[in-house]
Nucleic acid binder design. Sequence first.
DNA 1: CATGAATGAGTGTTCATTCAT
DNA 2: TATGAATGAACACTCATTCAT
Lengths: 214, 214, 214, 214
Amino acid sequence: MEKTATEFTDKQLAIIDAAQKLFAESGFDGTSVRDIAHEAGINVAMISYYFGSKEKLMEAVFEQKANHTRIKVENLLQNENLSPLEKVNVLIDDYVDKFIAQQEFHRIMIREQLIEKNNAVATLIYELKKRNQDSIKKLIHEGQKGGAFKKNIDIVLMMTTLVGTVSQMITSQRFYREMNHLEEMPEPEFQKYIRKKLSAHLKNLFKVILTYEA
Amino acid sequence: MEKTATEFTDKQLAIIDAAQKLFAESGFDGTSVRDIAHEAGINVAMISYYFGSKEKLMEAVFEQKANHTRIKVENLLQNENLSPLEKVNVLIDDYVDKFIAQQEFHRIMIREQLIEKNNAVATLIYELKKRNQDSIKKLIHEGQKGGAFKKNIDIVLMMTTLVGTVSQMITSQRFYREMNHLEEMPEPEFQKYIRKKLSAHLKNLFKVILTYEA
Amino acid sequence: MEKTATEFTDKQLAIIDAAQKLFAESGFDGTSVRDIAHEAGINVAMISYYFGSKEKLMEAVFEQKANHTRIKVENLLQNENLSPLEKVNVLIDDYVDKFIAQQEFHRIMIREQLIEKNNAVATLIYELKKRNQDSIKKLIHEGQKGGAFKKNIDIVLMMTTLVGTVSQMITSQRFYREMNHLEEMPEPEFQKYIRKKLSAHLKNLFKVILTYEA
Amino acid sequence: MEKTATEFTDKQLAIIDAAQKLFAESGFDGTSVRDIAHEAGINVAMISYYFGSKEKLMEAVFEQKANHTRIKVENLLQNENLSPLEKVNVLIDDYVDKFIAQQEFHRIMIREQLIEKNNAVATLIYELKKRNQDSIKKLIHEGQKGGAFKKNIDIVLMMTTLVGTVSQMITSQRFYREMNHLEEMPEPEFQKYIRKKLSAHLKNLFKVILTYEA
DNA sequence: CATGAATGAGTGTTCATTCAT
DNA sequence: TATGAATGAACACTCATTCAT
């Protein structure tokens, strides 16, 4: 879109996928370039050769995968058939769907945000969150202008609940399964199940946050 | 209380504190035992000497710090002066306070839950979450029996929002500062500020979850 | 021959030679991989790189050097120009020559046989001894069938004297030099000297063991 | 006797016994002072405290145990009821018995003789062997003077066969068991069995060496 | 363009020994 | 006299990266 994405070759994409998988499973420091090379079926030297360094590979993972995490609100704003709350609900669904579909990448994001020291990836995450924040802000303001939403809304706090709830669900889905005796449910079905649950739950919460006076 | 905690010496506690700090900052794999020894001002060999291994040190961190993370509900249940919702609110305050006060430990917990492969720490986290879940369940059931709370409540999902929101706030408090132009606020004041914000926000959400029919 | 030996590169062979030398001098536990790397003039990491571990390097030493320790009896059996006793004498010469020529390797073997706990090398030694035992057994049985050798021969005990005498000579050759005032004899000449001495001595003993009735 | 042996306390003797056992099993470098302390049921620091160092402990093991390895020939020389060959046979029995009875110590000796670099233990072994050599030399010379033994006898070579055969038997007694299908024989019985075998075998060999002209 | 070989720094852990009491 | 605590050096091994081709 606004940014010319780097074009990766098929081999590079294979490395990026392998890296994403292993970074999600074991973290950046817990994954060796040899692990990644083995997972991708390529020579270790290729990683430095193609990406320069392990760090740069992580950045490439972000560059390649982060777009799937962007909330898209442009078309929604112009849609005149939906009420502001309906638009927010569409957004929640979009967001939950993306999170569930891109779990590996989101696990990496959750982890990377915990790193104290600044780095290139932290900056990328910051920008991503900023953009998402701005998108949702537009939508909320629109609702506020029309009187559908109340005036005093802490959007960052609201987003914290959105992101936090979905992140926590990804993090502890095994716990959720066990608490609800869903151990035997096939993975795809379970993904659909929690997507639906999360969606309804968050829509309910957002309705309160956006419309009820405290 | 019900569990006889291992008694650590002052030096062991110093190592545990150093480890907690660095594990929180850089993760388990991103922290070397030499880093910890340097931070604690002791010889590297002492870590193996006292804890056996880096892994065991992590377990000791949990053993020492996890108790501060337990939700205590026993006295609350017997208190007849508070309504069920007031009790839940006390609980939320308790939980938020603990999270904010023990941020280092909670960063570690968030990270460790992301690790795929099972290990001793994962088991400790599981048990901790299970106990907390059970505590809150009692409180909710009490409120349901008295008719104060509605019947259909997905407690795990509710807790996911509680834990997720607070976790996400800890994770991205710098972002929160910047979005709200609070960069200059002194750290202690900011901690108090977000504690208050989180508390009010979560109480609001819980009220909805617990009392309004969807 | 019957067994496809692993092909080692020149650098690997240099490491194996260095390892053999140092293992012979100081034992497996008394030799560090750094010592070996220094002796071979290579980087420490190469040892893990090429052999996987110090243990595996020891196995490689055996794989590479053990063949020189095999007693070869096949051609001897078919030779019709030699009497059974002459054949045994050829064998003794062969054995003594190999032992003297491959002293470093034999020092390692003597040492490794003393290790109590079972391991890969112990197994290799066992098989080597078994094969040598079988080879000599054929020769003895041939002599017994023709009446050249007596019936009751404890072949294992006989081999114990062969191996033990040569091993002990290797072990204590400095002592032998001093007792016989041969300190000044050049090393190669001394090797020839004891080879001759051992050969004659053992042939004498074997003649008794094989032919005289006790 | 001629040498005032160091008096060791009971605790020191316990350490020495533990050290002998473990040095025999795993070698000097393969045994840690912690292993020894654990085996002896004492504090690690005691080893340095009592013996100065691990090296010195090994020397103490020799000081304490080596006497059991001395061949005693004095009384034998004065005995007029035995022929020279009978005296040699008594000696062989004595030697075999001591070796079998003190296997742990002899395993250590075999190993230590393989060490290239000179050290205190090597010196102790040298002196021990020298004394044993001298003892037997007297006996042989007596037999030669009386005409019972032939003139040209390489005593060192003969001793090499004696020591080597017994050492090799100790080293590879498991192999001997398996070759002779004696795996099920109880250990004490097996010890008696090989003692008898070795004794007869060596007497036979010595008779040849000492009396037959080559 | 691609890669097996190689490197030096770093990993967690164990070592024999010494310290403080 | 005895010992738990502590130490710095050394251990085998793995790391991300670079070299040579």
